[in-house]
Simulated scan of single mutants.
Amino acid sequence: MSLKHLLSAAACVAAIGVAPIAHSASINVLWYGQGSAYNTQMTNLAAGAASYDPAGDGSLSWNFTLWNSSDPTPTFSAYDVLVIGSSQTFGMGFDATRLLGAKSEIEAARGTRTFLSGQDADWHYINGPGAVDDGPRGFLINAVNWAGSGTGLGIVSLADGWAGSGSQWWSNANSFLAAELAGTTAYFQEESVVIPAATAGFPVNEGLTTAGLSNWGTSSHSGFTSVPTGYLSINDSGSFQGRYVTIVTEAYAGGCTSGCGDEPTPVPAPPTLLLMGMALFALGAVNRRRMR
């Protein structure tokens, strides 16, 4: 083999060795089930999730499972994301018994990404403004794809209905969120939800607009009076200064929604480093020959 061919082959193999690891185009979604009508609508949302790709940079399909009241406690580690929606019946809250009873199991499986919002986008997906891509539909799909693209069990939780202070089950002593959210949640009605300029380009806000997240006929029912440690606000209250509507895990707030798994940049394996060294040696030999 000529020196030129050796150089070419070594460079090609080295390039393969440092190529990023391919990721699956689907995630396993566990959704906290409610009544039959609610479950049907969320199943429909899941079925069309792969068609939502406003930036044209790829999408994820969902392997969708409902966790209904008659079901045993799931094996949470088998899922990429647990989604806990709002109330099926406006103003009534919902039965959080399953969540509170599975605290230790959820904590054991919980991963790197958590998405919490005072917006009841699932209720509005069903009742209006509906399947709007820069409104309830896009909001829900982005949230699930972002939380499910981390490592371990991601969490998406919305306000649990217009019933009391903040999201009631979040603050329950048996909630897996209680300690980290202590003293930060509050009940307030908000029609103006603002995407800050600093987070507008994040994948979790892909395709969304301030206008599309606002004016739902009470767009948000609760939120945060301060941002808890370890979180970042991606949607702020437009009417109440210093209040926040949607918060996400700060370390991965700008992370992907395409199943990246929070993996570090791949480091070339030793054989790859050897091949790269061979390529550099060959390149040096070619240069020395030209100088003669």
Rank of each mutant, 00 (worst) to 15 (best):
M291F: 13
S220K: 00
G223L: 00
R290L: 13
L181C: 05
L99G: 02
S59F: 01
G118A: 07
A9M: 07
V132K: 07
A131G: 05
Y252Q: 13
T73N: 09
A47I: 03
A253E: 14
A173D: 07
T184N: 09
V13P: 03
L177R: 07
T184D: 06
G217C: 10
S258K: 14
V13S: 09
V267Q: 13
R290H: 14
N205G: 01
P203M: 02
A159L: 06
W170C: 04
G164K: 08
V144P: 00
L274G: 10
S226K: 04
P54V: 08
D236A: 13
V227E: 05
G58D: 03
F224N: 07
L116Y: 04
V227F: 06
F240M: 05
R290E: 14
G150H: 10
G261F: 15
V286C: 09
F76N: 07
N172H: 11
D53N: 15
F76C: 03
L177H: 10
E180V: 15
P74T: 07
W170I: 05
S87F: 05
E206A: 13
A121D: 04
V193M: 08
E191K: 00
T40L: 08
G93D: 04
H124N: 15
T89D: 08
G152T: 14
P196D: 15
H124W: 11
G238K: 03
G56P: 08
T249Q: 11
A285R: 08
S51I: 01
H5C: 06
G150V: 15
T43P: 01
G118I: 11
Q119I: 09
F188D: 03
T209F: 01
P72Q: 10
L177W: 08
S165T: 12
V227L: 08
V156W: 03
G212Y: 02
H23N: 12
F281P: 01
R243Y: 10
W216R: 10
S8C: 10
A10H: 06
N142G: 05
A269C: 10
E107G: 01
P136G: 03
L99T: 12
I21H: 04
S2R: 14
S233Q: 12
A108S: 15
G223C: 04
S24M: 09
S26V: 01
A253V: 14
L232Y: 09
A55I: 02
A197Y: 10
A179T: 15
M291E: 14
L30W: 04
I106S: 11
